[in-house]
Nucleic acid binder design. Structure first.
Lengths: 352, 352
DNA sequence: CTGTTAGCGCATTCAC
DNA sequence: GTGAATGCGCTAACAG
């Protein structure tokens, strides 16, 4: 049985441009021109093509389009892990903003391993991505070079330094770490601990720690009196790290954690061990995740606008695509959210 | 300057199969065969091709491969939102497992809107995905039909019903809801409230609620005595819903929430309002997110193995690709995790 | 076992 | 303005 022209046609298994042209009574070339917005097409002709495409439910074959035009409308993103809300939020913002401009995102994860990141980058290049969004400024020496040679735009997030990328969207981790130190100093703290993320291959963790330490030593605190441990980002590790810290250095009055995840674990340990927060020890987190407001006391933390970072990254990508700009740095504001987990130190040197 | 054979060659801007063949001294067909693991190639020849590919850093052009072979190694996934950890975890498991088999995932979000889901599905088809992972069994009437006609494998998650899909990976939401009811009945509760997710277009929320209600009415509780409100999944809404519930029906002894997100908000409200949990009201969540262990008291909740669901989905997809199976149902275990937010009701009808 | 040939669906050059 | 022809990089027939 033939389809009757004008009825809501049952779509063929795959509608191709040829089918649209056939129905519109023109050549595929014309149909292609219309669908791609090339102005040089008669108004009537254009109408018919558009109508035909709509009726047939035409969806362009991206593989063919990509092969022909060298443009895939695909963006790759490599994050350490999707399990961490801070990255999930960033990807969410990126994906939604990009989708509005017809671009799709392919996601992959490196588990904080720069070598894996490099492999993933190659794979994404094979997939034809036009740009790759990376986290941080520190990468395998070959990664960015490789992207460059492949004509893929590298973009860094979680940093405000362009480095070897075409765009950086983020904030100054070092400054953020320093601002936490400043806040704690102003509260009168003298004995500091830090539970940092694993700094190996992770510039964000490194910078946060170094900014924190620099501010403290600048204030006359001896580096040797500051205890720093590193821990993978999960609650259980945060708890364990806090235990080891407090058992070894019971006189610490405050502990800065490189992530809320760790801070929340730290607070859990304090509960168990009967250590008052902030009475005996003040705890500060980083990221301002939802969990920061769930613990008791609520967590003082540095707010990172993850979703906005994803959106801003998308916008940078879009602008880069217009070729009007060649290098973009978007610095996002961070700010300290003071809640109940921090307090002043009494003149005796113990928290009030 | 010419590249010298044998040195670690600087990769050309884009290395093609032809380049590999050239260097290996064979035809592109042979090179293709080697790279695709077709056994019928001589050992020496295969060696040389492999070596050439490695030295040049050859990465196949997926667009061309896709166009020619109708196989893209691309899987699409449409989830309500990446902001909800339960979906982020699922995607994480899916992505990692698929990556091990050379498949990539394109992600998109529907914001719980079945019409948006339908649009996203079409877009993903245009991208050439071989399968699409959907959440739940309820979809726009055209969505699955469309996928079928386009030759794209539809897979449902968060459900154990095959429906119109080729594979279902998940659990019985109705049964899960019922098991929560059973647990609360056994504790002696008589006055029940529920903060469900928005059930419109969301079979998971609907089933959880219906299973809960069915078990209760089956136990002789009148439907009219059970108070159900619906709320979007975020903490603030959970808090507001709990407020409205407790202010209007102060005699409720227990409230079941369709997600830990809501439950956590509910508990926050109880803290503010001075309502003892579980002394005055028992609260149960759903999902067993990390946040369940962060609130005080810790949350009794139904564990949903989200990451495993993603992994199992990937495996179902892989098996479907082998064409040995044609329909796969994988039911995952859920179990109630009893923590501190629930307790028995005293003979007086109030919680003990 | 290996090379030659012919498209996959589309965007674009070139004629008209 | 519009149509016919070309080829993007690769894989799958087909020969040899």
């Amino acid at each position: 049985m033939n389809k009757i022209d004008g009825e809501v046609a049952a779509e063929a298994s795959v509608v191709k441009l040829k089918d649209v042209a056939l129905r519109a009574g023109c050549s595929v070339a014309t149909a292609s021109r219309v669908l791609n917005g090339h102005s040089t097409v008669g108004a009537m002709e254009r109408e018919r093509v558009l109508a035909a495409a709509a009726q047939l439910g035409y969806v362009p074959n991206n593989a063919a389009r990509a092969l022909r035009s060298q443009s895939t409308s695909l963006v790759g993103v490599i994050i350490p892990t999707l399990d961490h809300a801070i990255y999930a939020k960033m990807v969410s913002g990126l994906q939604e903003r990009l989708a509005r401009n017809g671009k799709a995102v392919i996601i992959s994860t490196s588990d904080y391993d720069l070598e894996r990141e490099r492999i993933q980058a190659r794979l994404l290049v094979g997939r034809g991505v036009e740009a790759i969004v990376l986290v941080g400024i520190e990468h395998h020496p070959e990664t960015v070079d490789y992207l460059r040679r492949a004509g893929v735009t590298p973009v860094f997030t979680y940093t405000n330094e362009l480095g070897s990328s075409d765009a950086a969207v983020g904030f100054d981790n070092r400054h953020a770490g320093a601002s936490v130190a400043r806040f704690l100093l102003d509260l009168g703290h003298k004995r500091f601990g830090m539970i940092a993320g694993i700094t190996h291959g992770n510039d964000r963790a490194t910078e946060r720690r170094d900014g924190f330490l620099a501010e403290l030593t600048g204030a006359g605190i001896s580096r040797r009196e500051i205890v720093v441990v590193e821990s993978r980002y999960n609650i259980e590790n945060g708890r364990a790290a806090m235990r080891s810290l407090m058992q070894t250095y019971p006189r610490l009055t405050t502990v800065f954690c490189g992530s809320d995840i760790l801070a929340v674990g730290a607070i859990k340990y304090c509960h168990e061990a009967g250590i008052a927060v902030p009475g005996e020890v003040s705890v500060v987190g980083f990221d301002n995740l939802e969990i920061a407001e769930l613990v008791t006391p609520e967590l003082t933390t540095l707010d990172v606008p993850a979703r906005e970072m994803g959106e801003a990254t998308a916008e940078a990508l879009l602008r880069l695509g217009d070729k009007k700009e060649t290098a973009i740095v978007t610095e996002l504001p961070t700010r300290l959210i003071v809640r109940g987990s921090t307090g002043p130190v009494s003149p005796s040197g113990r928290p009030a």
